[in-house]
Write a protein that binds this DNA or RNA. Structure first.
Lengths: 127, 127
DNA sequence: ACAGTGTACTATGTGTAGTAGTACACTTGT
DNA sequence: ACAAGTGTACTACTACACATAGTACACTGT
């Protein structure tokens, strides 16, 4: 399904969340598709089932998946999902911090815009 | 000099580092200006001297300040400082993560560009 | 000599992430 | 009815980073 970077400083649960969001939003996983069970994905990734369960819990709270007791976990319909203003605000704060880092490095505004635009365009499938 | 947000999830040492970079890069603190001693700043911010010392240690490693034993810590000349490619790469990764978050929220590329541009332009003094 | 400086070290407490193990209610297929 | 698989909810333990507390040392300027 995907792989983890155990050398990363990022939390394993966060990596699972990001990879799942990628698959869901990009359309690899369609609405109502079933995703691996907590125990199954934990087995694939060689991590503890509790860690996967934590990731699923957060993904469900954010509306990306939904669970049916005893049956499994499924992909939600992200198309009809309104943009969560709280998450958007958090994302904007992250971007502001990132841009500040470029500023602190002494990079010019024009150069910074080039760098950012390059990264945006890396997503050929976007929009 | 500046204030800390004790309710923030950001580490105190990281907040000190960011605030110092802001003052140095924006030109409030000029090269060879002396910055408060470890004990003095710790007293102002009501944190432990070790925490300030850690922040200063990192700032020196990144080239923003330099220390003279027994005399104090001073602002380095960031103008003549070459852009550290390792730090630049880290910043780019950070930006990529942030932009992905916008993508996961289902925001269009055009909308994302507007949001980013607005944040960049918040820095009226840049370049 | 003295006060102030950065630096280094140990010890302690706290919070978070992750692992390990167990238990329970539910659904499906037999 | 039964077994297997599902999500969920606990507790306990380890590991790590952060911050605090206290002490000590070498250096500088007066």
């Amino acid at each position: 399904m995907f792989e983890l970077d155990m050398k990363s400083r990022k939390a394993i649960s966060d990596q699972i969340i990001e990879n799942m969001k990628e698959l869901i939003v990009s359309g690899v996983l369609k609405p109502d598709d079933r995703i691996p069970s907590v125990r199954e994905l934990a087995g694939q990734l060689l991590v503890n089932p509790n860690t996967v369960a934590k990731a699923y819990r957060i993904l469900e709270a954010q509306g990306y998946i939904f669970t049916v007791k005893g049956r499994g976990t499924f992909v939600a319909d992200t198309q009809s999902m309104p943009v969560d203003s709280r998450e958007l605000k958090e994302a904007e704060t992250h971007i502001r911090d990132s841009i500040n880092k470029l500023y602190y490095l002494g990079i010019s505004k024009e150069r910074a815009k080039e760098i950012i635009d390059k990264i945006v365009e890396e997503r050929g499938d976007w929009k």
